[in-house]
Write a protein that binds this DNA or RNA. Structure first.
Lengths: 242, 242
DNA sequence: TATCCTACAGTTGTATGCATGGAGACGTCA
DNA sequence: TGACGTCTCCATGCATACAACTGTAGGATA
């Protein structure tokens, strides 16, 4: 976590601060002071302000009435509701895709991704990084099939929150046995959604995509039900308020 | 539209620029230059940057790769999709309200608002400002009944776009006759949504709230179907790209 | 004792000058 | 004629000094 080599001070500050918020180093409710941050990061207030402004755009900070920024607090309910919201939005994307007709090239690309995931399953130990990548691409394609720029944008916005990403909690599954079962079930849901879209079954596509997001929600609830503190096994949940 | 008296230069710049974007004075695709704006507004670059940053947060500007801001383009499809999205989100709020049980005090307040709207209907010429205010409060309460901070926030975000507000297009209805009929129908829908929530009928509440948003969508399509250019009768549509 | 007033300290708001870096214009070379 | 390279200009990135504001603590007064 030394000095990162990106283009601008503002960008480096953005990355650093985002990281500190996500890993719980800057807990929800913390007021962020420009001067203090500038000194801590060894830069001036100007790029700090730029970074804070972008974090507010990402919904990780709230603007304080009368100036200043405060780290947003995320309770368990917020995480659950955000995942639910992703399900609703992806459900809408699936419905629109079915109603409007998904572009053949996107359907083809999706098919290739699903076959790619199948291939991963044939190896004993699953390549999680590879799965995560393909899974993200699948969800990206699903959004694009809606052919709605507005929806694509809003889904991207929600997914930017780490705990709401379709690939969240994949790296912190403790029970490897369950994991395989879980992923196989998810793959079945992927197929069902695409099938519904292909057959122009809007309502069915919407329900299936919604239900698919529920898997992530169950994952959260499982991780939180364990005795261990969330931060140990689930980095994505480090942001949770105490 | 002279110099407005708010607290800071940045805030005044924000209001001025927002207005110019919404009324089409700064059409979609326009690149905004800090120096030029600073000179035009008679202030320095710093508050201009602050204002631009907040407009990006409101989704009225896009950040240009490599710096700078560009006015976002809104096509008819974007307006329609945004209204559809509001319907989806308000539908979700209604469903959650039904599933989780709406707080009695919110239901009571909603009832008062609905009675208030009824009262407006008893006068020959409807007080549009009054209706608009009550209608906004109804939609605000609907969001809050979901008891989901995440959803409340996202709905507020969408409604901030002028053409997606539940009270958009009220002031630019040309045919006063249809207007009364339209508003009466909307009021029926309001009642139906609340009834479904009260009876804990989640799916029905969701469908009704969604359909309610379709009224706004039909309004857009009606306004655009007229011969007159959009800007004349419908200020909310002035933002549309040519 | 309660309230108001004042002064101060700390924080953000603003202006400005300089640094940096990218895109386009222009010219040269193959 | 086309492509490549360089040079210049202009917009943004950044630092810094100063201004304005806000909340608070302390004291004075009724």
């Amino acid at each position: 976590m030394a000095a990162e080599r990106s283009s601008t001070h503002a960008h480096r500050a953005l990355i650093t601060l985002r990281q500190r918020i996500l890993n719980g180093e800057l807990p929800g409710g913390t007021r962020l002071y420009e001067v203090a941050l500038a000194e801590a990061l060894g830069i001036s207030r100007t790029p700090v302000r730029a970074a804070l402004s972008r974090l507010a755009e990402e919904a990780l900070l709230d603007r304080n009435a009368g100036g200043g920024f405060i780290v947003r607090s995320f309770a368990v309910a917020d995480v659950v509701d955000t995942i639910e919201l992703r399900g609703v939005l992806e459900g809408t994307a699936a419905r629109l895709a079915a109603e409007r007709g998904a572009p053949p090239e996107l359907l083809a690309e999706t098919g290739a991704i699903l076959r790619g995931i199948d291939t991963l399953f044939q190896i004993e130990t699953i390549d999680m990084e590879g799965y995560s990548h393909l899974n993200s691409r699948f969800h990206d394609l699903l959004a694009r099939m809606s052919q709605s720029e507005v929806l694509i944008r809003e889904i991207a916005r929600i997914i930017a929150l780490p705990f709401a990403s379709p690939s969240a909690f994949l790296d912190d599954q403790s029970r490897q046995t369950d994991l395989v079962k879980t992923l196989a079930a998810a793959q079945d849901q992927h197929r069902a959604v695409i099938e519904a879209i292909t057959h122009r079954e809007g309502s069915r596509a919407e329900s299936l995509a919604r239900e698919h997001a529920r898997a992530a929600r169950r994952n959260v609830e499982f991780l939180l039900s364990r005795e261990a503190t969330p931060k140990d096994g689930a980095p994505s949940l480090a942001i949770l308020s105490a």
